[in-house]
Design a protein around this nucleic acid. Structure first.
Lengths: 213, 213
DNA sequence: ATCGAAAAGTGAACACTGTCCACAAATGCC
DNA sequence: GGCATTTGTGGACAGTGTTCACTTTTCGAT
């Protein structure tokens, strides 16, 4: 649909939506080859525009990459939300809390296995820390970090986690799944089959549950 | 300063040790800027040699990077060994096992904080999995993965870990510290002060200990 | 409605990268 | 001593990010 934009030479001198076109092209490159495959000139080529035109919308390639990364982060958040929405709050808050934490971890890992390029792009270079940047968020309006915090809050509220252990628990839980994801994607475990990675992920989440408190 | 080597033009037409010189230069670039800062032409420049000369020793930039990564991995292993050697086996095997595992984790994290560029380079792109490649090893002849296995073996032998849970425990333990390291180095936590990262690391290792079994 | 400033695109250039080719010099081996 | 093999040179090419001067379009104030 919107690819035609790149093929048929546009009639208007102005492109009209160049910034979005560039980000979209960059996103596709990130999907295919990770962060350092997002090439500025190639994006302009796909948008049917001269290379320098990009500089009217981005200060440079780094800024384009930033925009692409935001888009990738948003996808990660969406994947986590999808996983969380599979379980509704029932009459057992502790079971719900466990399921929530589990969903965050496995949603994260599942996306990493499903979309390696986007995942690697999302967490490659310095993104601002807990930015409430609306571009990073999915429908619930929370980024991956905040979704994790939500799950941990449920753990605490349901009595599975005391206040002492709650502090900084985000970082501990996040580290585990993030580490496994990167070891499997671009680390020494990159040959391990995905289902085995996900199985390890299950054990990992259990370990976190047990080890946090 | 150190680059006199590059400044004084060599008398011999042959360089004599070009391969090593290139790896050394590459290692310094990796230290300063991570994996994609190791530039082939720059290495030849520092070695005082024409760019193409590198192709007599490496098939291309990727292969040079591979050699540099091996060197980095070796440093990681050395850091872990240093940490492990701080504790000798006493009369309490369980305490020794715990200290060993702790040392592996903190040696790993400590190196990551101390030498971010080298660490990121060591684990950036696909290295062969558990290669007994002697280039990746330090004085004990073990790479980081094997050092971790050793520590976990001690856990099992001393009865802290049963056979069921021992299987694949390397990957679970490794994931945690690796994840924290990368989140802190090139992820959303890159602004967190190092001592706080190390403090989190302590909690993380404890969590692993408790959560594994 | 006009006209002028600002926005958005073009074209040509530069420095830098990795890589390949044909050739020259040094080494070592018989 | 002569000769093949290694090792380095010089010159070239495509691809990248980036900048500068210029043109075209749009839009808002008069």
């Amino acid at each position: 649909m919107k690819k035609n934009v790149s093929l048929e030479k546009r009639k208007t001198f102005r492109h009209g939506d160049l910034r979005n076109a560039l980000v979209t092209a960059g996103l596709e490159m990130a999907r295919a080859g990770g962060p350092n495959a997002v090439i500025l000139r190639e994006a302009t080529r796909q948008a049917g525009v001269a290379p320098n035109a990009a500089y009217r919308h981005f200060a440079g390639q780094a800024e384009l990459l930033d925009a692409v990364r935001s888009a990738c982060l948003s996808r990660v958040a969406a994947a986590i939300e999808d996983e969380m929405k599979k379980h509704k709050a029932g009459r057992n808050p502790q079971a719900f809390a466990r399921k929530s934490l589990h969903a965050v971890g496995m949603g994260y890992l599942g996306f990493a296995m499903r979309e390696p390029g986007m995942f690697r792009t999302a967490f490659s270079v310095p993104p601002p820390v807990h930015s409430p940047d609306p571009a990073n968020t999915a429908s619930m309006g929370l980024n991956p970090f905040q979704l994790l915090s939500l799950a941990l809050d449920r753990m605490q509220e349901s009595g599975l986690l005391n206040r002492k252990d709650r502090k900084g628990a985000e970082y501990l839980a996040w580290s585990t799944v993030h580490g496994l994801a990167l070891l499997a994607l671009e680390g020494p475990l990159h040959k391990m089959p995905r289902e085995m990675v996900l199985a390890l992920g299950e054990r990992l989440v259990v370990m976190v549950e047990r080890g946090l408190s």
